[in-house]
Design a protein around this nucleic acid. Structure first.
Length: 424
RNA sequence: GGAGAGAUGGCUGAGUGGUCGAAAGCGCUCCCCUGCUAAGGGAGUAUACGUUAAUAGCGUAUCGAGGGUUCGAAUCCCUCUCUCUCCGCCA
């Protein structure tokens, strides 16, 4: 959520910023509603004040044994008037909140302008795409030939956009996950965390998936519905919900491995083949909860942590700054890591690291006591993939393939693979 | 799933319709006293919103959440959530 005070004081400035995303915010309509809210609130509160005063004097009169009938008569119509303004105020406030919950985050100044992912700005590259002495295959061909990747079997059980993995490939994904968790916890200062995979709506509202993107989520049909998490960002970030941290407790660096569930509504036809885009995939997530002045540095650090994984795996990648047209709803600034996939001869997203500054914290009331003033202020949240395990598996398959279709095991994964150096 | 008990400020815990944002204790902060530690005395110590130049005042809301009764609700009623105890079931 954008600071309502800022919306009031500089609605046009907000509109200009959001326009960079191609989002149109009707500042005048908002301000008109806001004026209405203000007068209703002032009126409501003065009526409440009047009511409280009368109630108090009635209490005092009664204690002294005086006749309270005249006093009761005097407040006779107060209740009805209060009820009217209170309900009017509430409906205006609901309207305002609906608007506010629908507004994306303000963009950082240095987010490059652009309309689509083609306009993202390359920040740096690491590694050289390997030159193969043969025509490299894609992960689908490799996996099916190895017998460990089966989309037909998955289709029988669950339909399209699911995969069954077995044997060496299944173990390789587990190895990747273990390696990532171990690296982040032992070298990057993250706390390993186990979280629920089913969450309530309010958690998703906190991180920004709701109310706007419900169609992207899977939802249970229980009386009080749960949603399947689309990313561990949701339960991890919400650990800061309704809390006031002491400044010494931050920064909090959290990591969790979870499956992620996405309906992929609206992505028909995209990446339908293979494991790139699935309803269910594994991911190691990184989340930072930090004091407000720390988030810019934290974004660079977090991106570096995800890069470390790719570097240790010796996977060529590039870092791009997402442009105004491609950046996510809750992010003020995002770096994507794109790994080289020889099967596609393309860089493909494998991690996305975002600074959400106070956007999520405001929604979930996550605060930190200011070191100087002692006053609570909104903390800043960041999230990033460290990295997507399913896609990392694809990257390893394609980059480590040999001419006979076998897969060399990356050195850093060997300890997790029982020492074997090839999957054949 | 069955039966019962509970949810109050950083913590413990009082408060069953009126002057209660809330006793008391602990903790914490500041001051005083005290030749350093200990003990003692005093003051302060929630959050959000509104109004405002103001993190000054003043007002409003908040005692798990939401609704209701009432001139007035932490206190009474309803629904929900969570916690605990016992039974059942179970990885």
């Amino acid at each position: 959520m954008i600071d309502p005070k800022l919306l009031r004081s500089d609605a046009n400035g907000v509109a200009t910023n959001l326009a960079r995303r191609g989002f149109s915010f009707d500042a005048d309509a908002y301000l008109a509603l806001e004026e209405k809210r203000k007068s209703l609130q002032v009126e409501t509160e003065s009526l409440q004040s009047e009511r409280n005063k009368s109630a108090k004097s009635i209490g005092q009169a009664k204690a002294k044994g005086e006749d309270i009938e005249p006093l009761l008569a005097a407040v006779n119509d107060l209740g009805a008037r209060l009820e009217d303004t209170e309900s009017a105020l509430q409906s205006v406030q609901t309207e305002l909140r609906d608007i506010e919950l629908g507004l994306p985050n303000l963009l950082a100044d240095d987010v490059p302008d652009g309309n689509s992912e083609d306009d993202n700005l390359e920040v740096r590259r690491w590694g050289e795409p390997k030159a193969f002495a043969f025509a490299p295959k894609d992960h689908i061909e490799l996996g099916e030939a190895l017998g460990g990747l089966d989309f037909d079997a998955a289709a029988k059980v669950s339909g399209a956009r699911f995969a069954v993995m077995q044997g060496g490939l299944a173990r390789l994904q587990r190895a990747l996950i273990q390696f990532m968790l171990d690296t982040h916890t032992s070298e990057h200062g993250y706390r390993e965390t186990y979280v629920p995979y089913l969450v309530h709506a309010h958690a998703l509202e906190g991180t920004g998936q709701l109310p706007k993107f419900e169609e992207d989520l899977f939802k249970t049909t229980t009386e009080r519905p749960f949603y399947l998490i689309p990313t561990a960002e949701v339960p991890l970030t919400n650990l800061g919900r309704d809390r006031i941290f002491d400044v010494g407790e931050l920064p909090l660096r959290l990591t969790a491995h979870t499956p992620c569930f996405r309906s992929e509504a609206g992505s028909h036809g995209q990446d339908t083949r293979g494991m790139i885009r699935q309803h269910q995939f594994e991911k190691v997530e990184l989340v930072h909860l930090v004091a407000p002045d720390q988030s810019e540095a934290a974004l660079e650090a977090m991106t570096g942590h995800a890069e470390t994984i790719l570097q240790r795996l010796e996977l060529p990648y590039r870092v791009v700054a997402l442009c105004t047209g491609d950046i996510g709803f809750g992010a003020s600034k995002t770096y994507d890591l794109e790994v080289w996939l020889p099967g596609q001869q393309k860089y493909r997203e494998i991690s996305s690291c975002s600074n959400c500054n106070d956007f999520q914290a405001r929604r979930m009331k996550g605060r930190v006591r200011n070191a100087d003033t002692g006053k609570p202020e909104l903390l800043h949240t960041l999230n990033g993939s460290g990295v997507a395990a399913g896609r990392a598996l694809i990257a390893v398959l394609e980059n480590y393939q040999q001419e006979d279709g076998s897969i060399r095991v990356p050195d850093v994964l060997k300890p997790y693979m029982g020492g074997i150096d090839t999957i054949a």
